Amino acid sequence: MEAKDTTHFGYKEVPTAEKAKHVAEVFHSVAGKYDLMNDLMSLGIHRFWKHFTIMNSGVRRGATVLDIAGGTGDLTRQFSKLVGDTGKVVLADINASMLNVGRDRLTDDGIVGNIEYVQANAEALPFPDNSFNCITIAFGLRNVTDKDKALASMFRVLKPGGQLMVLEFSKPAEWMAPIYDAYSFKILPQLGKIFTGDEDSYRYLAESIRMHPDQETLKQMMTDVGFERCEYHNMTAGIVSLHRGYKF
């Protein structure tokens, strides 16, 4: 299958080769206020979504974990405690600004010793086959240009018996959709404008969520690259879903 010349960046069509650059510009712009905006946008509920992901990871002492699009390190922080000094967590992000914020934040809090930081593209992960017991990507897959290629890359570096967890915005329940749309397109960009001076990046966020595959489509995409026992759990009326799949 030939690669498409263009792809979506929110509701816009851009050259496929340029999408990563456009996404990078968004996250360079918001990196410093990323955690604040997460709290404002979700009324703090993003912490529950991430806690639920950690609790369902099955990660134990001595495990190796890859946190893709790990950003400011919310998941890495918790995984570091779970794996202990005999385990390892790799915080990977394609965006240098986000990676630096995460590294500085965790280091300032004294969370060091079992964490590595790697700037990496999810479509071509720079790790050997069968490297990790658990892989997570939280609110990052929708920004990836070629999601199938990224999922295949994650499958390759996951150990047999390991689990992939994709935490991502998804398609809300029908009754929630009009409320969510009004919030996303009217309130969210204004929050971005007020607190970060960047309205456009948060308009892109709302658009990118709408362009992301729905629950069943993403589940099938995971199955197609080799993951087994794929399932998802909706949270907050389907605004967010946690997809899980295993490599056997």
Rank of each mutant, 00 (worst) to 15 (best):
S42I: 05
R229T: 02
D104Y: 08
A138G: 15
S29V: 08
R47C: 04
G73R: 09
R60M: 04
V14M: 05
D85R: 15
V23N: 05
D109W: 07
N121D: 15
L106A: 10
I111T: 12
I115G: 02
N38F: 07
V65T: 03
M98N: 09
L91K: 12
K149L: 14
Q163F: 05
W175P: 00
D146C: 03
P126V: 02
S29F: 02
Y34F: 13
D198I: 11
M222G: 02
G162F: 13
Q78L: 14
A182C: 06
E216D: 11
L141C: 03
G161W: 10
I115E: 00
F185C: 02
F9G: 02
S80I: 03
M165Q: 15
W49C: 01
G10F: 03
M98P: 08
A206F: 09
Q215M: 10
N133S: 14
A17Y: 00
E228G: 10
D104L: 12
Q190C: 10
A69N: 05
K193N: 15
T217M: 02
E216Y: 01
S29R: 12
T7R: 04
D85T: 09
I194A: 11
R105S: 14
F195Q: 07
A206G: 15
K193P: 06
F52H: 09
K186M: 00
S153V: 04
F155M: 10
A63D: 15
T7H: 00
R60V: 08
S57E: 01
P128C: 11
V240H: 05
Q119W: 00
A120C: 07
F248E: 08
E207R: 01
P126S: 09
M37V: 00
R244I: 12
I54S: 04
I187H: 06
L99N: 06
I115F: 06
E18V: 03
N38G: 04
L191G: 05
F139R: 04
G44L: 05
Y232A: 10
S153L: 06
M221R: 02
E2C: 00
F9T: 03
G62L: 00
M1N: 02
K4L: 07
I45N: 05
T145A: 12
H212C: 10
R244S: 13
L158Y: 12
R229N: 11
P126L: 04
E199H: 09
D198E: 13
A20N: 14
D200A: 15
L167W: 07
F139Q: 03
D224Q: 05
H243V: 07
T72Y: 01
R229F: 09
D146I: 01
S29G: 13
N56E: 06
V112R: 13
G245C: 02
T6N: 08
H243T: 08
N234C: 11
Q220K: 13
T223K: 03
M235Q: 15
N56A: 00
V59G: 07
L82R: 15
Y246Q: 11
V90L: 06
I68Q: 01
S153T: 07
R142Y: 10
L82A: 12
I179K: 11
I239W: 07
S97D: 13
G87T: 06
P189Q: 02
Q215H: 14
Q78A: 15
M221K: 03
S29W: 08
T64P: 02
S201G: 15
K149F: 03
T196S: 12
P172A: 06
K81R: 13
V166Y: 10
D224C: 01
T196A: 15
I54R: 01
N234G: 11
